[in-house]
Design a protein around this nucleic acid. Structure first.
Length: 409
DNA sequence: TTTCCACAGGAATTTTTGGAGA
DNA sequence: TCTCCAAAAATTCCTGTGGAAA
Protein backbone atom coordinates (compact mmCIF):
# COMPACT_ATOMS: atom_id res chain seq x y z
CA UNK A 1 0.00 0.00 0.00
CA UNK A 2 1.35 3.47 -0.83
CA UNK A 3 1.82 6.30 1.58
CA UNK A 4 -1.41 7.87 0.37
CA UNK A 5 -4.71 6.17 -0.05
CA UNK A 6 -8.18 7.58 -0.50
CA UNK A 7 -9.72 8.48 2.86
CA UNK A 8 -12.97 6.76 3.69
CA UNK A 9 -15.42 9.62 3.87
CA UNK A 10 -18.97 10.81 4.22
CA UNK A 11 -18.36 12.90 1.11
CA UNK A 12 -19.48 11.66 -2.24
CA UNK A 13 -18.27 14.81 -3.99
CA UNK A 14 -17.04 17.53 -1.64
CA UNK A 15 -16.27 19.88 -4.53
CA UNK A 16 -19.98 20.62 -4.77
CA UNK A 17 -19.57 22.59 -1.54
CA UNK A 18 -16.57 24.52 -2.82
CA UNK A 19 -16.77 28.22 -3.52
CA UNK A 20 -15.84 27.75 -7.16
CA UNK A 21 -18.63 25.30 -7.86
CA UNK A 22 -21.13 26.62 -10.37
CA UNK A 23 -24.57 25.10 -9.81
CA UNK A 24 -26.54 24.46 -12.98
CA UNK A 25 -29.60 26.10 -11.50
CA UNK A 26 -29.72 29.26 -9.44
CA UNK A 27 -32.20 29.04 -6.60
CA UNK A 28 -34.17 31.69 -4.75
CA UNK A 29 -33.12 34.46 -7.13
CA UNK A 30 -35.93 34.35 -9.67
CA UNK A 31 -36.77 38.02 -9.41
CA UNK A 32 -33.18 39.16 -9.64
CA UNK A 33 -32.49 36.88 -12.59
CA UNK A 34 -35.54 38.25 -14.39
CA UNK A 35 -34.33 41.81 -13.83
CA UNK A 36 -30.97 40.73 -15.13
CA UNK A 37 -32.54 39.14 -18.18
CA UNK A 38 -34.42 42.30 -19.00
CA UNK A 39 -31.30 44.40 -18.60
CA UNK A 40 -29.37 42.16 -21.01
CA UNK A 41 -32.15 41.70 -23.53
CA UNK A 42 -31.16 44.76 -25.65
CA UNK A 43 -27.98 42.96 -26.65
CA UNK A 44 -29.96 40.30 -28.49
CA UNK A 45 -32.42 42.83 -29.91
CA UNK A 46 -29.66 45.19 -31.05
CA UNK A 47 -31.24 48.00 -29.10
CA UNK A 48 -29.37 50.75 -27.19
CA UNK A 49 -27.56 49.36 -24.17
CA UNK A 50 -27.63 50.52 -20.61
CA UNK A 51 -25.01 49.70 -18.04
CA UNK A 52 -25.81 47.41 -15.17
CA UNK A 53 -24.90 47.66 -11.54
CA UNK A 54 -25.24 44.74 -9.16
CA UNK A 55 -25.22 45.29 -5.41
CA UNK A 56 -25.22 42.88 -2.51
CA UNK A 57 -23.15 41.68 0.42
CA UNK A 58 -20.71 38.79 0.04
CA UNK A 59 -22.34 35.41 -0.42
CA UNK A 60 -25.63 36.73 -1.79
CA UNK A 61 -25.14 35.23 -5.23
CA UNK A 62 -24.09 38.26 -7.30
CA UNK A 63 -21.12 36.61 -8.96
CA UNK A 64 -22.77 33.25 -9.48
CA UNK A 65 -25.85 34.88 -10.96
CA UNK A 66 -23.74 37.03 -13.28
CA UNK A 67 -21.78 34.02 -14.52
CA UNK A 68 -25.00 32.15 -15.08
CA UNK A 69 -26.57 34.99 -17.02
CA UNK A 70 -23.64 35.65 -19.30
CA UNK A 71 -23.19 31.94 -20.02
CA UNK A 72 -26.75 31.78 -21.24
CA UNK A 73 -26.43 35.06 -23.05
CA UNK A 74 -23.36 33.89 -24.92
CA UNK A 75 -25.02 30.64 -25.88
CA UNK A 76 -28.20 32.30 -27.09
CA UNK A 77 -26.38 35.06 -28.95
CA UNK A 78 -24.88 32.45 -31.26
CA UNK A 79 -28.31 31.78 -32.72
CA UNK A 80 -28.38 35.23 -34.26
CA UNK A 81 -26.01 36.07 -37.10
CA UNK A 82 -26.19 39.79 -36.52
CA UNK A 83 -25.29 39.67 -32.82
CA UNK A 84 -21.58 39.81 -32.16
CA UNK A 85 -20.83 39.41 -28.47
CA UNK A 86 -17.66 39.04 -26.50
CA UNK A 87 -17.19 38.91 -22.75
CA UNK A 88 -14.40 40.25 -20.59
CA UNK A 89 -14.27 39.51 -16.88
CA UNK A 90 -11.97 41.41 -14.54
CA UNK A 91 -11.84 40.86 -10.79
CA UNK A 92 -10.85 44.11 -9.09
CA UNK A 93 -9.94 42.69 -5.67
CA UNK A 94 -6.39 43.99 -5.87
CA UNK A 95 -6.95 46.99 -8.10
CA UNK A 96 -7.38 50.25 -6.27
CA UNK A 97 -7.59 52.79 -9.07
CA UNK A 98 -9.12 53.35 -12.48
CA UNK A 99 -5.65 53.24 -13.95
CA UNK A 100 -5.02 49.76 -12.61
CA UNK A 101 -8.38 48.52 -13.80
CA UNK A 102 -7.67 49.90 -17.26
CA UNK A 103 -4.30 48.11 -17.36
CA UNK A 104 -5.91 44.88 -16.23
CA UNK A 105 -8.53 45.23 -18.96
CA UNK A 106 -5.95 45.85 -21.67
CA UNK A 107 -3.99 42.81 -20.54
CA UNK A 108 -7.13 40.72 -20.42
CA UNK A 109 -7.97 41.68 -24.02
CA UNK A 110 -4.47 41.29 -25.42
CA UNK A 111 -2.66 38.06 -26.12
CA UNK A 112 -0.12 36.96 -23.55
CA UNK A 113 2.87 38.16 -25.59
CA UNK A 114 1.61 41.73 -25.85
CA UNK A 115 0.97 42.48 -22.20
CA UNK A 116 1.76 45.91 -20.79
CA UNK A 117 3.35 46.69 -17.45
CA UNK A 118 1.35 48.15 -14.59
CA UNK A 119 3.58 51.21 -14.34
CA UNK A 120 5.19 53.74 -16.60
CA UNK A 121 2.24 54.72 -18.79
CA UNK A 122 0.10 57.78 -18.48
CA UNK A 123 -3.52 57.13 -17.70
CA UNK A 124 -4.62 58.52 -21.07
CA UNK A 125 -2.18 56.25 -22.93
CA UNK A 126 -3.66 53.17 -21.25
CA UNK A 127 -7.19 54.33 -22.00
CA UNK A 128 -6.28 54.77 -25.65
CA UNK A 129 -4.83 51.25 -25.80
CA UNK A 130 -8.03 50.00 -24.24
CA UNK A 131 -10.16 51.76 -26.85
CA UNK A 132 -8.02 50.38 -29.64
CA UNK A 133 -8.41 46.84 -28.32
CA UNK A 134 -12.15 47.28 -28.02
CA UNK A 135 -12.41 48.50 -31.59
CA UNK A 136 -10.39 45.53 -32.81
CA UNK A 137 -12.85 43.16 -31.22
CA UNK A 138 -15.88 45.10 -32.38
CA UNK A 139 -19.48 44.20 -31.73
CA UNK A 140 -20.91 44.27 -28.25
CA UNK A 141 -18.22 43.93 -25.62
CA UNK A 142 -19.58 43.00 -22.22
CA UNK A 143 -17.17 44.13 -19.53
CA UNK A 144 -17.73 42.67 -16.09
CA UNK A 145 -15.94 44.48 -13.28
CA UNK A 146 -16.23 42.30 -10.18
CA UNK A 147 -15.73 43.94 -6.77
CA UNK A 148 -15.52 47.30 -8.47
CA UNK A 149 -16.01 49.13 -5.15
CA UNK A 150 -12.29 48.62 -4.55
CA UNK A 151 -11.46 51.59 -6.74
CA UNK A 152 -13.16 53.91 -4.27
CA UNK A 153 -13.99 57.33 -5.62
CA UNK A 154 -11.53 57.16 -8.51
CA UNK A 155 -14.16 56.54 -11.18
CA UNK A 156 -12.56 57.72 -14.44
CA UNK A 157 -12.82 54.27 -15.96
CA UNK A 158 -16.52 54.12 -15.21
CA UNK A 159 -16.94 57.47 -16.85
CA UNK A 160 -14.79 56.77 -19.88
CA UNK A 161 -15.88 53.30 -20.93
CA UNK A 162 -19.62 53.83 -21.37
CA UNK A 163 -19.03 57.09 -23.25
CA UNK A 164 -16.11 56.03 -25.40
CA UNK A 165 -18.36 55.53 -28.38
CA UNK A 166 -20.30 58.75 -27.92
CA UNK A 167 -17.05 60.64 -27.56
CA UNK A 168 -15.68 59.20 -30.77
CA UNK A 169 -12.84 57.17 -29.27
CA UNK A 170 -14.20 53.94 -30.69
CA UNK A 171 -16.34 53.24 -33.70
CA UNK A 172 -16.88 49.54 -34.15
CA UNK A 173 -17.50 48.37 -30.62
CA UNK A 174 -20.36 48.82 -28.21
CA UNK A 175 -19.04 48.53 -24.66
CA UNK A 176 -21.39 47.56 -21.86
CA UNK A 177 -20.25 47.63 -18.27
CA UNK A 178 -21.57 45.37 -15.55
CA UNK A 179 -20.30 46.53 -12.16
CA UNK A 180 -20.52 44.21 -9.19
CA UNK A 181 -20.17 45.78 -5.76
CA UNK A 182 -20.23 44.54 -2.18
CA UNK A 183 -20.72 48.02 -0.90
CA UNK A 184 -24.13 49.68 -1.02
CA UNK A 185 -22.48 53.01 -0.33
CA UNK A 186 -20.29 52.78 -3.39
CA UNK A 187 -22.80 54.54 -5.58
CA UNK A 188 -22.92 57.53 -3.25
CA UNK A 189 -19.19 58.07 -3.56
CA UNK A 190 -19.25 58.24 -7.33
CA UNK A 191 -19.26 61.55 -9.05
CA UNK A 192 -22.75 62.56 -10.25
CA UNK A 193 -21.87 62.33 -13.93
CA UNK A 194 -20.91 58.69 -13.51
CA UNK A 195 -23.82 57.89 -11.27
CA UNK A 196 -26.53 58.44 -13.84
CA UNK A 197 -24.86 56.57 -16.69
CA UNK A 198 -23.75 53.60 -14.69
CA UNK A 199 -26.77 53.12 -12.55
CA UNK A 200 -29.31 52.95 -15.34
CA UNK A 201 -30.13 49.41 -14.31
CA UNK A 202 -29.61 48.37 -10.71
CA UNK A 203 -30.09 44.89 -9.37
CA UNK A 204 -30.11 44.36 -5.64
CA UNK A 205 -29.20 41.04 -4.01
CA UNK A 206 -30.52 41.02 -0.44
CA UNK A 207 -29.15 38.60 2.19
CA UNK A 208 -30.74 35.15 2.24
CA UNK A 209 -33.06 34.12 5.04
CA UNK A 210 -32.97 30.65 6.60
CA UNK A 211 -35.68 29.22 4.34
CA UNK A 212 -33.89 30.36 1.20
CA UNK A 213 -30.60 28.99 2.44
CA UNK A 214 -32.28 25.65 3.07
CA UNK A 215 -33.48 25.50 -0.48
CA UNK A 216 -29.97 26.29 -1.72
CA UNK A 217 -28.26 23.84 0.58
CA UNK A 218 -30.44 20.76 0.24
CA UNK A 219 -29.70 19.97 -3.42
CA UNK A 220 -26.02 20.57 -2.88
CA UNK A 221 -25.94 18.47 0.27
CA UNK A 222 -27.55 15.66 -1.65
CA UNK A 223 -24.80 15.70 -4.25
CA UNK A 224 -21.96 16.31 -1.83
CA UNK A 225 -22.69 13.59 0.71
CA UNK A 226 -23.50 9.90 0.43
CA UNK A 227 -27.08 8.94 1.17
CA UNK A 228 -28.20 8.81 4.79
CA UNK A 229 -25.08 10.26 6.39
CA UNK A 230 -26.69 13.61 7.26
CA UNK A 231 -28.92 13.88 10.29
CA UNK A 232 -32.19 15.73 9.66
CA UNK A 233 -31.17 18.86 11.52
CA UNK A 234 -27.79 19.36 9.84
CA UNK A 235 -28.82 21.46 6.85
CA UNK A 236 -31.43 23.55 8.75
CA UNK A 237 -28.82 24.34 11.40
CA UNK A 238 -26.28 25.50 8.83
CA UNK A 239 -28.95 27.69 7.28
CA UNK A 240 -30.11 29.08 10.59
CA UNK A 241 -26.61 29.97 11.80
CA UNK A 242 -25.66 31.61 8.51
CA UNK A 243 -28.97 33.49 8.28
CA UNK A 244 -28.57 34.87 11.80
CA UNK A 245 -25.04 36.01 11.13
CA UNK A 246 -24.61 37.30 7.59
CA UNK A 247 -27.27 35.78 5.36
CA UNK A 248 -24.47 34.50 3.18
CA UNK A 249 -24.74 31.28 1.20
CA UNK A 250 -20.97 31.04 1.24
CA UNK A 251 -20.99 30.89 5.02
CA UNK A 252 -23.76 28.28 5.09
CA UNK A 253 -21.88 26.08 2.61
CA UNK A 254 -18.70 26.53 4.57
CA UNK A 255 -20.45 25.35 7.74
CA UNK A 256 -21.82 22.32 5.94
CA UNK A 257 -18.42 21.46 4.54
CA UNK A 258 -16.61 21.92 7.85
CA UNK A 259 -19.19 19.80 9.66
CA UNK A 260 -18.60 17.02 7.15
CA UNK A 261 -14.86 17.45 7.39
CA UNK A 262 -15.00 17.03 11.16
CA UNK A 263 -16.80 13.74 10.72
CA UNK A 264 -14.34 12.54 8.11
CA UNK A 265 -11.34 13.54 10.22
CA UNK A 266 -12.68 11.65 13.22
CA UNK A 267 -13.44 8.57 11.15
CA UNK A 268 -17.10 8.78 12.12
CA UNK A 269 -19.89 7.86 9.75
CA UNK A 270 -22.73 10.31 10.38
CA UNK A 271 -22.96 14.08 10.45
CA UNK A 272 -25.04 15.47 13.31
CA UNK A 273 -26.14 18.86 14.57
CA UNK A 274 -23.30 18.79 17.07
CA UNK A 275 -20.81 18.66 14.24
CA UNK A 276 -22.43 21.78 12.81
CA UNK A 277 -22.19 23.51 16.18
CA UNK A 278 -18.55 22.53 16.34
CA UNK A 279 -18.01 23.87 12.84
CA UNK A 280 -19.71 27.11 13.77
CA UNK A 281 -17.41 27.46 16.76
CA UNK A 282 -14.39 26.67 14.58
CA UNK A 283 -15.40 29.27 12.02
CA UNK A 284 -16.01 31.84 14.74
CA UNK A 285 -12.69 31.06 16.38
CA UNK A 286 -10.77 31.48 13.15
CA UNK A 287 -12.47 34.82 12.59
CA UNK A 288 -11.47 35.95 16.08
CA UNK A 289 -7.87 34.85 15.53
CA UNK A 290 -7.83 36.64 12.21
CA UNK A 291 -9.16 39.78 13.91
CA UNK A 292 -6.41 39.55 16.51
CA UNK A 293 -3.70 39.18 13.90
CA UNK A 294 -4.87 42.28 12.10
CA UNK A 295 -4.39 44.51 15.16
CA UNK A 296 -1.66 47.13 15.24
CA UNK A 297 1.36 46.92 17.51
CA UNK A 298 -0.37 49.15 20.04
CA UNK A 299 -3.46 46.99 19.90
CA UNK A 300 -1.27 43.96 20.57
CA UNK A 301 0.44 45.77 23.43
CA UNK A 302 -2.88 46.56 25.09
CA UNK A 303 -4.05 42.99 24.57
CA UNK A 304 -0.80 41.68 26.00
CA UNK A 305 -1.21 43.85 29.07
CA UNK A 306 -4.64 42.44 29.66
CA UNK A 307 -3.27 38.93 29.06
CA UNK A 308 -0.68 39.58 31.74
CA UNK A 309 -3.38 40.56 34.21
CA UNK A 310 -5.31 37.45 33.26
CA UNK A 311 -2.29 35.22 33.84
CA UNK A 312 -1.99 36.64 37.33
CA UNK A 313 -5.70 36.22 38.03
CA UNK A 314 -6.02 39.97 38.38
CA UNK A 315 -9.05 40.35 36.15
CA UNK A 316 -11.28 42.16 35.78
CA UNK A 317 -8.92 45.17 35.72
CA UNK A 318 -9.94 48.77 35.81
CA UNK A 319 -8.54 51.01 33.10
CA UNK A 320 -6.22 52.88 35.47
CA UNK A 321 -4.40 49.76 36.69
CA UNK A 322 -4.22 48.35 33.20
CA UNK A 323 -2.66 51.57 31.92
CA UNK A 324 -0.01 51.48 34.66
CA UNK A 325 1.12 48.05 33.57
CA UNK A 326 0.76 48.97 29.92
CA UNK A 327 3.50 51.54 30.41
CA UNK A 328 5.96 48.95 31.68
CA UNK A 329 4.94 46.54 28.93
CA UNK A 330 5.65 48.96 26.10
CA UNK A 331 8.99 49.76 27.67
CA UNK A 332 9.94 46.08 27.66
CA UNK A 333 8.93 45.50 24.06
CA UNK A 334 10.53 48.76 23.01
CA UNK A 335 7.36 50.29 21.59
CA UNK A 336 6.00 53.80 21.91
CA UNK A 337 3.87 54.49 24.96
CA UNK A 338 0.66 56.19 23.94
CA UNK A 339 -1.61 58.34 26.09
CA UNK A 340 -4.32 56.88 28.26
CA UNK A 341 -7.12 58.28 26.13
CA UNK A 342 -5.84 56.29 23.15
CA UNK A 343 -5.46 53.14 25.21
CA UNK A 344 -9.09 53.54 26.16
CA UNK A 345 -9.91 53.76 22.46
CA UNK A 346 -7.97 50.56 21.84
CA UNK A 347 -9.84 48.84 24.65
CA UNK A 348 -13.10 49.88 23.10
CA UNK A 349 -11.92 48.52 19.73
CA UNK A 350 -11.02 45.21 21.35
CA UNK A 351 -14.49 45.12 22.86
CA UNK A 352 -16.07 45.68 19.45
CA UNK A 353 -14.05 42.81 18.05
CA UNK A 354 -15.35 40.57 20.80
CA UNK A 355 -11.89 39.95 22.21
CA UNK A 356 -12.57 41.49 25.61
CA UNK A 357 -15.62 42.24 27.73
CA UNK A 358 -16.31 45.36 29.78
CA UNK A 359 -18.22 45.73 32.99
CA UNK A 360 -19.32 49.17 33.96
CA UNK A 361 -18.87 49.82 37.66
CA UNK A 362 -20.08 52.78 39.65
CA UNK A 363 -19.32 53.41 43.29
CA UNK A 364 -20.51 56.99 43.49
CA UNK A 365 -18.58 59.28 45.74
CA UNK A 366 -16.28 56.45 46.82
CA UNK A 367 -14.65 55.53 43.57
CA UNK A 368 -16.71 57.09 40.81
CA UNK A 369 -17.57 55.48 37.53
CA UNK A 370 -15.16 53.27 35.63
CA UNK A 371 -14.83 50.27 33.32
CA UNK A 372 -13.38 46.90 34.17
CA UNK A 373 -12.02 44.65 31.44
CA UNK A 374 -11.35 40.96 31.03
CA UNK A 375 -10.42 38.66 28.17
CA UNK A 376 -13.31 36.93 26.45
CA UNK A 377 -11.01 34.68 24.45
CA UNK A 378 -8.80 31.80 25.61
CA UNK A 379 -5.55 33.13 27.06
CA UNK A 380 -3.62 30.48 25.09
CA UNK A 381 -4.84 31.65 21.71
CA UNK A 382 -4.07 35.26 22.61
CA UNK A 383 -0.51 34.36 23.57
CA UNK A 384 -0.10 32.25 20.48
CA UNK A 385 -1.07 35.12 18.19
CA UNK A 386 1.07 37.61 20.09
CA UNK A 387 4.18 35.43 19.95
CA UNK A 388 4.07 35.70 16.17
CA UNK A 389 5.67 39.12 16.57
CA UNK A 390 9.31 38.65 17.61
CA UNK A 391 9.53 41.76 19.74
CA UNK A 392 6.79 40.26 21.94
CA UNK A 393 8.66 36.95 22.41
CA UNK A 394 10.36 37.67 25.73
CA UNK A 395 7.39 39.11 27.51
CA UNK A 396 4.98 36.50 26.16
CA UNK A 397 7.39 33.93 27.61
CA UNK A 398 7.18 35.66 31.00
CA UNK A 399 3.38 35.65 30.90
CA UNK A 400 3.38 31.96 29.99
CA UNK A 401 5.59 31.28 33.02
CA UNK A 402 3.09 33.07 35.20
CA UNK A 403 0.30 30.87 33.89
CA UNK A 404 2.31 27.75 34.69
CA UNK A 405 3.14 29.15 38.12
CA UNK A 406 -0.59 29.35 38.77
CA UNK A 407 -1.06 25.73 37.81
CA UNK A 408 1.42 24.54 40.41
CA UNK A 409 -0.14 26.35 43.37
C1' DT B 1 -32.29 66.58 46.36
C1' DT B 2 -27.76 67.73 45.48
C1' DT B 3 -23.04 66.75 45.12
C1' DC B 4 -19.20 64.91 43.21
C1' DC B 5 -16.00 60.92 42.11
C1' DA B 6 -13.32 59.13 38.33
C1' DC B 7 -13.46 58.06 34.45
C1' DA B 8 -15.91 57.55 29.40
C1' DG B 9 -15.77 59.04 25.16
C1' DG B 10 -16.76 63.14 21.59
C1' DA B 11 -14.48 66.76 18.81
C1' DA B 12 -10.76 69.19 16.99
C1' DT B 13 -6.17 69.00 15.84
C1' DT B 14 -1.62 67.21 14.98
C1' DT B 15 1.51 63.43 13.79
C1' DT B 16 2.66 59.22 11.54
C1' DT B 17 2.31 55.98 8.04
C1' DG B 18 1.92 53.72 3.77
C1' DG B 19 1.29 53.78 -1.06
C1' DA B 20 1.67 55.92 -5.69
C1' DG B 21 3.70 58.99 -8.92
C1' DA B 22 7.74 61.90 -10.53
C1' DT C 1 15.16 57.78 -4.43
C1' DC C 2 12.32 61.70 -3.00
C1' DT C 3 7.85 63.92 -2.75
C1' DC C 4 3.24 64.24 -2.12
C1' DC C 5 -1.22 62.88 -0.49
C1' DA C 6 -4.75 60.75 2.01
C1' DA C 7 -5.92 57.84 5.61
C1' DA C 8 -5.03 56.12 10.08
C1' DA C 9 -3.21 56.83 14.56
C1' DA C 10 -2.23 59.67 18.32
C1' DT C 11 -2.78 63.80 21.17
C1' DT C 12 -5.09 67.46 23.42
C1' DC C 13 -8.88 69.36 25.47
C1' DC C 14 -13.02 68.81 26.81
C1' DT C 15 -18.06 67.78 28.28
C1' DG C 16 -21.05 64.13 29.92
C1' DT C 17 -22.56 60.66 33.18
C1' DG C 18 -24.78 57.17 36.98
C1' DG C 19 -25.30 56.45 41.39
C1' DA C 20 -23.49 56.38 46.42
C1' DA C 21 -22.95 59.61 49.89
C1' DA C 22 -23.97 63.94 52.08
Amino acid sequence: MGMFERTASVFDDAMVLDEEYQPDKIRERDEELEQYRQALQPIIDNRPLSNIFVYGKTGTGKTVATRYMIDHLQEDAEHYDDVALSITWVGCENLSSSYQVAVALVNELRSSDHQISTTGHSQQAVFNMLYTELDKIGGTVLIVLDEIDNIGSDDDILYGLPRARANGYIEDARPLVIGISNDFQFKENLSPKVRDTLCEAEILFPPYDATELNSILYPRAEKAFYDDVLADDVVPLCSAFAAQDTGSARQALRLLYLAGKRVADNGETNVTGDHVRGAKEELHQSKVIEGMQKLTTQGHAVLLTLASHTANSETPVRTRDLYDRYKTVTEKIDADTIVERRVRAHLSDLTMLGLVTVHERNEGLNAGRYHEYELSVQLDSVLEVLSEEQRFDDIVEIVKQQVHGMDRT
